[in-house]
Design a protein around this nucleic acid. Structure first.
Lengths: 344, 344
DNA sequence: ATTAGCACTTAACCATTGAGAGTGCTAAAC
DNA sequence: GTTTAGCACTCTCAATGGTTAAGTGCTAAT
């Protein structure tokens, strides 16, 4: 790979670019027409044959042109990222700004709109995920009496997430007790991650069995219920965008994608595994560890507030993706969010 | 219509049923085979020709069997509802129960799961919508200090909805002032609909300009922000179910549906217009006033807590829908939710 | 090393064809 | 007079086959 001739690189990139822009296998003639190498189709043909041998290109069938393999895309993308001075588009930046600026106060609406923006701009699937609740840090908990036997627990996290959850009680509780419980829970758990708190609660509860302090035991029960969130929040938009792509002309493929979106499971797992790393990440087709994703490419980046990860945003699309644009959009969206959050 | 012969009715129903179960146009021969009238294909043929003249059946093309028109479905459904003693299926009831029972405390999760249940059971699109916020009644508002210049407003409605919203302040506020504002807002607005409150706030604010009482004016500002919710909450699930239906074999149709789901706009409007009426409602194809819906059928029902509507749930599918099952599922889901809510 | 020329391969397109399904009409049967 | 058998007719659908166009790989000439 490192010993590939400069000329071959150029041809490979030409093929990839052509294929990204026009979804037809690209032939030697086309390359000479669209990109001006000073070479004849026959020469290009030889080069392309070499690139195929090296595993960067493939033929759908004997008499068709070539299409990039995942390795081909990878090479192209690495080059793209190395050059770094690709593509700028003020309109896109402004669009991101315009759509997200006003929404900073509500993380759910915000992430939802983020995915819509991502998909609108990229014409692929936009995804966003808030960080795993287990890992977030409780800032404060407030308990509000709601109905006779129900209270609303409002959880504030360091990340700026606000969650509310209704907790049912086995018996009525006085406002005074509720205040004491609130105070107790805050003094005990504020500053700890949900995971830690859960662990502490379990420990405490087994102790309580012996000591039988009803108030603390009640506090623990409430706390356990209040923290029982099942999953991360995943937002996905833009399935309808994907319909227009020739890559998904096949009904089956869209169905699969649609299933994945409704399941959420696969995508959550994917983003979860990516959220551990910092900054931009690009996964191309078969590089994905999950089977359902092996025909798709993923471009994501993490958003941070200070050094704390606040979520991950990205684009999912076909391997024949406009990586340049996708990278630009995702990168800037993530940076914009990070900046927006740190500014406040 | 009312003077239609008994025999013709039977044939019409047979055609509808056959077509619902097997997505092929049904011919006279098929009718005699699958349903035992004591008649020959030729006679059935004549009857079916009559039914076509009357507008209940139609031929896709000359040499095909017949398919029901929307009027045909309507006739069938009306009969179905009139008889009322259709279809019962304990498994379905148990499934509904099992999936929804535990979730009553969180309206959002609950409605989301409701749509998933509806779509899973029906294999069509499941939809659910919480009532328009404008029309809901504020029970209580709580303001919690969140960051220096931000507070979280927690809104409790009579319907059991809990909404939180972050409100930015122009300058810091003391806890004491916040408490006073909270008390003021509750005494002033509790028991009023959001719509009324908004109106009052606007009135008050113009007055304030003159009196210049900063605390009340602050309270109003906060209240206005806290109540600025854009839309109803719409939940839709099961697009992937719809892929397997031959009615949507065409990519274009699914794309349209997928757009409608992402827009939400059309569906919200639809459900909104239906939420005014009580109980089960069935809209078949062209009976829909909206163009986007003219190829779809809708089966919905409203859920109530006491006499107060709490939302609307339903199924959207092709006109060739298994109405019997759909009605059963929607009706029982709505009733179950109503019962669940009134039990508490 | 590059290129022109050419035979070869394959998918895509198009027109034709025949089978199959279902109808409407007519005339016979009940 | 209602029902039915018989039959010609219409239309879709799937299969067939031939043609076209695109693009390749190889060879020989530049």
């Amino acid at each position: 790979m490192q010993m590939m001739e400069e000329r071959s690189k150029k041809v490979l990139c030409a093929v990839v670019q052509s294929y990204i822009n026009f979804p037809d296998p690209v032939g030697s003639m086309l390359v000479t027409k669209r990109y001006s190498f000073g070479l004849s189709p026959a020469t290009i043909r030889n080069i392309m044959a070499d690139l195929e041998d090296m595993g960067f290109l493939a033929q759908p069938h004997t008499s068709a042109g070539r299409v990039p393999t995942d390795r081909g895309y990878r090479f192209y993308v690495d080059l793209l990222v190395a050059e770094k001075d690709y593509y700028t588009n003020m309109e896109i930046l402004q669009e991101i700004y315009k759509r997200l600026e006003a929404l900073r106060n509500n993380i759910d609406v915000f992430l939802g709109e983020t995915t819509r923006t991502l998909s609108k701009l990229s014409h692929y699937l936009g995804v966003a995920m808030s960080p795993r609740l287990d890992m977030t840090t409780l800032k404060r908990i407030e308990l509000l009496k709601y109905r006779a036997d129900k209270i609303a627990a409002i959880l504030f996290t360091d990340e700026g997430l606000i969650k509310n959850k209704v907790v049912s009680l086995d018996s009525e509780i006085s406002q005074k007790d509720l205040n004491r419980i609130t105070g107790y829970l805050n003094s005990e758990f504020s500053g700890h991650t949900f995971d830690e708190i859960r662990f502490k609660v379990i420990k405490e509860m087994s102790k309580e069995k012996i000591r039988c302090d009803t108030l603390i035991s009640r506090a623990m029960k409430i706390c356990r219920e209040a923290l029982s969130f099942s999953h991360n929040d995943l937002f996905v938009s833009g399935l309808s965008e994907v319909f227009d792509l020739p890559d998904f002309a096949d009904l089956k493929k869209i169905r699969e994608l649609s299933r994945a979106i409704e399941d959420k499971h696969t995508i959550i797992e994917l983003l979860d595994s990516l959220s551990e790393f910092d900054g931009l990440q690009i996964i191309i087709g078969s590089e994905n560890s999950m089977d359902e994703m092996k025909k798709l490419s993923v471009v994501v980046s993490t958003c941070k507030e200070g050094y704390r990860p606040i979520g991950v945003v990205g684009i999912i699309g076909p391997t024949r993706m406009n990586y340049e644009k996708a990278i630009y959009i995702v990168d800037n969206t993530a940076k914009f969010i990070t900046k927006m959050l740190s500014g406040r």
